[in-house]
Computed example of a mutant assay.
Amino acid sequence: MNEPIYVTQPVLPELAEFIPYLEQIWKNKILTNCGPLHQQLEKELCEYLGVDYISLFNNGTIALVTALQALGLEQGEVITTPYTFVATAHSIVWNKLTPVFVDIDPETSNIDPKKVEKAITAKTVAILPVHCYGIPCEVEQLQALANKHSLKLIYDAAHAFGCEYQGQSLLNYGDLSVISFHATKVFNTFEGGAIICHTAEMKQRIDRLKNFGIVDETTVDGISLNGKLSEVHSALGLLQLKTIDKTLEARQKIDENYRNFLQNIDGIKCISRLHLEKDNYSYFPIVISERYPLSRDELFEKLKANNVFARKYFYPLMTDLNVYQQFKSEAPNAKQLSEQVLCLPMYPTLIIEQIQMIVDVIQECAK
């Protein structure tokens, strides 16, 4: 119990279970370039997630960059949220597009469709919302706006692996959805990511773009990056899929324990996840309001002093970073949430005694 408790730990299988996959790779002598394990993982992920087409990538950031490129967005403005990880905004700028940051709904932490509509101009070409913490955006309203103004709709769904909303995968909404398989995510392939699309033609375009734009041995039809996922990463993904449901069950129990233990602490609010039909419990964010005796930063330091390493996620806002000062916009809801939110440790092997100890620190500070 004296060991550090970090905000997350990667889920890994038993090493002995991974060895046979490595032996198969050594036998095949295929390490990359969409080998047999890569193809098998794409097939099994489609079945598990309930999606038609998926293209694997070496990470979620390259997948985001490629998603914008795949939709032919060469110039113009992309409306997005300032309450996100830097990869969301970076992918826009890498494509020489202009990010337009609008405010969020403080209840969901997701982009506010009303603010999106006000930000649409003749220069707008796309909307790039984030399913923050795996909580679904207002997908119907955003799709209606995209249809009305002939805009592309790409979801940064890095947190949304396995989430279901209104009877289907949350990844099926929009023109494209991008997910991350980073080590910290509920499903990881060491590093990795993917784009979900809806047609064979779009998958073919995406697959070419993630392989330098190569069509065949003598033809290249686009200037793009190398985003392929290796066979070793694919092998881990296949093994992780075998236990993903147990992983999600363990995360659900931790979520329930946190909510039960924290419910009577004044000034501490747990962000609701009630709209999901199937959740992945990817994070456990709490909001520290003015009624709590300590500020968010003070509680963060108090937890750290007790060997508990929470995370201010997302802080600072994109628009508060020096590299995005030129795109500064007013987003008071996002600003306030970024200064009050704290993600508590969340991973499947977190035990009840550790959860209770974390809550005890929070409870003690409330006195």
Rank of each mutant, 00 (worst) to 15 (best):
residue 243 T to A: 07
residue 202 M to R: 03
residue 314 F to Q: 01
residue 333 N to P: 13
residue 252 Q to M: 10
residue 58 N to R: 14
residue 18 F to K: 08
residue 102 V to Q: 01
residue 288 I to R: 01
residue 131 H to I: 02
residue 202 M to K: 14
residue 72 G to L: 09
residue 215 V to K: 03
residue 277 E to K: 05
residue 181 F to C: 11
residue 309 F to H: 14
residue 334 A to Q: 08
residue 21 Y to F: 15
residue 58 N to L: 09
residue 264 N to A: 09
residue 354 Q to C: 03
residue 232 V to A: 13
residue 270 C to Y: 09
residue 303 L to R: 11
residue 135 I to W: 03
residue 171 L to P: 05
residue 22 L to F: 10
residue 110 N to E: 02
residue 36 P to W: 00
residue 142 L to F: 03
residue 190 F to R: 06
residue 231 E to K: 10
residue 209 L to Y: 12
residue 254 I to T: 11
residue 147 N to I: 02
residue 59 N to Q: 04
residue 221 D to G: 00
residue 206 I to M: 03
residue 317 L to H: 10
residue 339 E to R: 09
residue 173 Y to F: 14
residue 269 K to G: 00
residue 6 Y to F: 15
residue 71 L to G: 06
residue 27 K to W: 11
residue 216 D to I: 12
residue 63 A to D: 10
residue 79 I to D: 01
residue 298 E to G: 12
residue 58 N to V: 15
residue 90 H to A: 14
residue 272 S to C: 03
residue 89 A to F: 08
residue 148 K to H: 11
residue 324 Y to P: 08
residue 289 S to E: 12
residue 209 L to E: 07
residue 30 I to F: 06
residue 333 N to W: 07
residue 191 E to K: 06
residue 104 I to N: 07
residue 187 F to S: 00
residue 90 H to Y: 11
residue 126 A to R: 06
residue 357 M to Q: 14
residue 57 F to L: 07
residue 135 I to D: 11
residue 26 W to S: 14
residue 98 T to A: 02
residue 1 M to T: 01
residue 208 R to S: 09
residue 229 L to N: 02
residue 102 V to L: 00
residue 169 S to F: 01
residue 17 E to S: 15
residue 91 S to A: 15
residue 208 R to W: 10
residue 115 K to Y: 04
residue 70 A to N: 13
residue 163 C to G: 02
residue 345 P to R: 02
residue 268 I to A: 04
residue 295 S to V: 00
residue 62 I to D: 05
residue 247 T to N: 05
residue 160 A to G: 11
residue 188 N to F: 00
residue 296 R to N: 09
residue 231 E to V: 05
residue 353 E to Q: 14
residue 174 G to V: 11
residue 14 E to D: 03
residue 321 L to V: 10
residue 58 N to A: 10
residue 3 E to N: 14
residue 282 S to T: 12
residue 154 I to A: 04
residue 290 E to A: 15
residue 80 T to Y: 11
residue 310 A to L: 07
residue 239 L to I: 08
residue 4 P to Q: 09
residue 191 E to G: 10
residue 20 P to Q: 12
residue 268 I to Q: 06
